[in-house]
Design a protein around this nucleic acid. Structure first.
Lengths: 195, 195
DNA sequence: AGCATTAATTAGCTTTTGTTAATTTTTTTA
DNA sequence: TAAAAAAATTAACAAAAGCTAATTAATGCT
């Protein structure tokens, strides 16, 4: 079942799409709720489902042989989440996708979008929005890694997304920033002591 | 003027495109040669040109206030190059795009692709190829930064692209890897001494 | 509320990186 | 091909990060 909001979201991307395609898209689109801690996509699975986050926060992480968890992706309201291993290059996910808060998604199947996009340019525009959204986040992060120090990276993150520190445990934030939890703790201390 | 090769490349992505669009695309597509050292896109300009590299190697870099150059992107044969600041979010480029070798591009204008993609799903597929290509490289690099140490990052790069060390000066490679030239030199020494 | 669990901080120590500058090697070019 | 310029390496030192483990703080649960 789709809410008024969902319908508005779809209408915004469906200009020029024919009625049959709209029907197919709506029929498969679901509002999905995932509780905090729950796994959305397991490692090794090849799910092409794709969620547009309405509320909540999710992460993708990898489990290292020694048991360490490395958070590779954080996504929140108005962003897309999905196994890009599967969606982009048709491979099983190397990552585990998990909700860190109770999360509400508008879920579609990327294969359907893909198939329709190949026939319908308005759906193609939707696919493009998804890809640009992923690209924006990705290039931004690369720039953080290349141009900034770990400390600057952390400051940039809390500047751009101030609520993140209250929503994501430091142990996840730190690996997301490419450093260890111990190191992040020291960075925070250094920042605090600088006044 | 397009070569036989260029034409084949376009045909591969033009299934189902109408004749008028094909004509428009071919009319604007150019084979462009850039000599080593030459600037392709200057900082602050908003060019939507997009090159598909046939031969050669290019980089995007940023000039820091103190004069340091930071290489943020390296692109080579069969990859796309273009100001993603402009193409993706309609802003002037924060980076300088430069050929590191004599480079041959097949150049199109992204605005034309974009406009045609919004009407034509086959062109949309072409846009998608470009976006996925960018995404693949971007996510791969993020994973390098999050999961690997500088040394591992360097080893991964020379494993996946062995000729890069002979084609790109270390001072560019190092900042591309998020470290200083001095540090890369030490890493190389450490690797060599481990037998 | 109290106990158990988990997260964050701190400490001590080692390794690596950044920085600056000097030296050596390589490349360019006149 | 010799001189000049640029790149790479090395050195010395300070700053920061990784690692392991202990301690403290926060959170979750019955």
């Amino acid at each position: 079942m789709l809410s008024q909001e969902d319908i508005q979201f779809y209408i915004s991307i469906l200009k020029g799409v024919n009625v049959i395609d709209i029907y197919r898209l709506f029929k498969t689109a679901k509002t999905k709720k995932i509780r905090a801690g729950e796994i959305y996509i397991h490692e090794g699975t090849a799910s092409t489902k794709m969620g547009h986050i309405k509320k909540g926060l999710m992460r993708a992480y990898q489990l290292k042989p020694n048991g360490d968890e490395i958070t590779i992706l954080l996504r929140w309201e108005s962003q897309f989440i999905g196994s890009y291993d599967t969606i982009m290059w048709q491979k099983p996910s190397r990552f585990i996708f998990q909700a860190l808060e109770d999360t509400t998604l508008t879920e579609t199947d990327y294969n359907l979008v893909q198939e329709m996009a190949d026939r319908n340019s308005s759906i193609g525009a939707y696919r493009s929005i998804f890809q640009v959204d992923m690209l924006k986040e990705a290039t931004d992060r690369i720039e953080s890694f290349v141009l900034l120090s770990p400390k600057e990276r952390y400051l940039k993150l809390i500047h751009e997304k101030p609520d993140i520190v209250n929503r994501v445990p430091d142990k996840y934030l730190s690996t997301y920033l490419g450093i260890t939890p111990v190191s992040l703790s020291r960075i925070r201390k250094r920042i605090a002591s600088e006044q």
